[in-house]
Computed example of a mutant assay.
Amino acid sequence: MALSLQKLLSDMNCAMRILINFFCLLLVSLAGTAAEARIVKLENFPSSFVQPRNISILLPKDYDVSKRHYPVIYMHDGQNLFEPGYAYGGQEWGIDEAMSGMKRQAIIIGVWNTSLRGREYLPAKVVAHLPADLRQRIEKVHGGVSLADNYLRFLVEELKPYVDKNYRTKPGLRSTSLMGSSMGGLISLYGMGEYPKVFGNAAALSIHWPLADPTKVQDHEIDLITGAYGQWLKSSRMRPGKNRYYTDHGTLNLDGFYRPYSTRMDMIFSNAGWRQGANWSSRIFIDTDHNEAAWRQRAEIPLTFLLNPVK
C-alpha cells in the first residue's frame, strides 16, 4: 500500500513537471510571436517646409515586449524599404529582414519621396560652388533649384521631434543616423554636414556624386564637381572625431561611372582628417549594379556601420 501511494505521488509529480514544462514552452512561444518587428504608417505627414508625405516606421522586434530606448535611422525613399507593393520596380530593400538578423536593433524611419525627389535630394550648398552654366544644367535635370535645405528642416524641426516624442528613442547625435542610396546618399551626407549635432552618422550606398546624368559630364567637369564637394566640406561643421560616414558604389551600369568621382572624394575626405576603417568607410563592390536588389544584398553592411558604437 505504501509503495503504491509512493508511486502515485511520483507519477503525479512527473505529470506536474510535464504540465509546467508545457506551459513554459507555450509562454515562450507566445512571447516569440509578440516579439515581431512591425511597421507603423503615417499618412500624409504635414510640413511647413515641404510637401506632405507618407512615413513608414519599422519598430524593432522586441519594441513591444521591452522598455528599451533605441537608436534611430532616418532613411530616404521610404516606400522602397519594406514592402514590394510600394517599391520602385516591385523590388524593396528588405530592411526589415536585414534588421531581424542583427544583434543591435534600431527604429527605422522610412521617409517617402515625392515628385520633387530630385530637387529635395540635390545638395544646395554643394551646387552653389559650381560654375553658373554647370549648376543650371544640373538644376534643369532635376526640374528646378534645390529644395534640400527645406527638406532637411522638415526632418530636423518637424519629423525628428515627433518621432522622439512618440517613440522610445535615443535622441542624441551618436544614436541618430541618415541613410539612402543614389541621390538619397547625397542628401544623407549633406544632411549630416549641415546638421552634425543632430545626425552623428550617415550612410550613402551608390552615392550619386555626379549630381545629374554622368554621361553628360565632361572630364574636366568631374574636377569641378568634386571640387565643389571639397569646398562645401570645408564650410560644413561635421568633424571626423564626432561624425561617422559610410559610402560605397558598384561597378555596373550607372554605378560604373562613379569610380573617377569616388577616387577624388576619398582623397578629399582623407586630407580632411577622416580615417578609413575608423570614422569613415569607402567601399567598392565589383560587378554590382545600381538598383534595389543590389542594395538589398549589402544593406546589413552599412546598417552595422551605423549602429556600431564610436570607438
Results as ranks from 00 to 15, higher is better:
I207T: 13
M1N: 10
E36K: 13
R38M: 13
P52S: 10
I107L: 12
N291H: 08
Y151E: 03
R119N: 05
Q231Y: 09
V65S: 05
K311L: 09
G94M: 09
K242V: 08
P123M: 04
K170P: 00
T226D: 12
P60W: 00
N113H: 14
Q51C: 00
W295Q: 01
S236V: 03
D133R: 09
T251C: 05
L30T: 11
G89M: 06
L178N: 01
P171A: 12
N13A: 08
A35R: 04
G191C: 14
V65F: 05
E83I: 12
P131D: 14
V40W: 04
R104Y: 08
D223H: 11
A148Y: 04
N271K: 15
R275A: 15
K234F: 01
R168V: 14
V145Q: 11
P131E: 09
Q297C: 04
I20L: 13
Y195L: 01
K160L: 06
R117L: 07
Q6F: 02
I20W: 07
P171V: 05
R283K: 15
Q6N: 04
L58Q: 04
G185L: 07
E97G: 05
L58T: 02
L59R: 01
Y151G: 00
L252G: 01
W93T: 06
I39S: 00
I18G: 06
S281V: 15
C24L: 14
I108T: 10
E43I: 13
L59I: 14
D77M: 05
D213I: 09
A128E: 15
Q231R: 15
Q297G: 09
I225T: 05
S282L: 06
N13R: 11
M179R: 01
L122V: 02
Q79T: 04
Q6S: 06
K160V: 09
D248Q: 11
K103V: 08
P260K: 00
D255C: 07
T169E: 05
R264I: 10
A299Q: 01
T247N: 11
G277Y: 12
Q105A: 05
V127W: 01
F257D: 13
M183A: 10
S48P: 08
P123L: 08
M99C: 02
D255H: 02
R244C: 06
P260N: 06
D223P: 06
D219R: 14
T263V: 15
V40I: 15
H129N: 13
Y190R: 10
D219Q: 12
D213Q: 00
S56R: 14
S146G: 06
E221S: 05
G241T: 04
F305K: 00
L81P: 02
G78S: 08
G89Q: 13
I222D: 04
I109L: 10
R296N: 14
P210L: 06
N21G: 12
G85W: 03
S282I: 01
I225C: 06
L42I: 15
G90S: 14
A37V: 09
C14N: 04
L152D: 09
R296D: 13
G78M: 03
R264V: 12
A212R: 02
G144H: 08
A98E: 02
M99Q: 07
Q276C: 02
F199I: 05
F269T: 04
R237V: 07
M102I: 10
A98H: 00
L233H: 05
P210V: 09
E292N: 15
M238C: 13
K170S: 03
L224A: 09
F49E: 06
V50P: 02
L58R: 03
